[in-house]
Amino acid sequence: MSEVIDLVLSRPGVNPERLAEELAGLGIAAYRGVSTGGGRVRVHVVPGLPEADRAAIRAAVARHDPAVPSREQRAAAARQAALAALRQPWPAWTDADKDAFLRLLAAEWGLIPEEE
């Protein structure tokens, strides 16, 4: 098991996907991921993290807003909205609807990048 240490911060009510995105966005090479649970945030880093990086991590956790969705959550919401718009009888489907559905399906299957 490669060695990681935890930076443990008290922070209830987080959006784990968004927080992970924000921490990854700091571009800290020692960052290995984040865990949440029980009102604690544990940021996993390799030992020897410089103090400036620690401070940047603490600040990111402090300013984290759980109400802000992650990129993936925004894409999922957009996908749900697009699917909801297609919920109509088949005769009402236009060529544009069929094209939109095909695009959603292709993104779902990983054949094309998902649109936000």
Partner: peptide, 19 residues
Amino acid sequence: NAGAYTTTSTTLVPVDDVN
């Protein structure tokens, strides 16, 4: 846990080293 545990760690880490 009165809520889900989550992780994005790609290295094995404890789920909850206390509880």
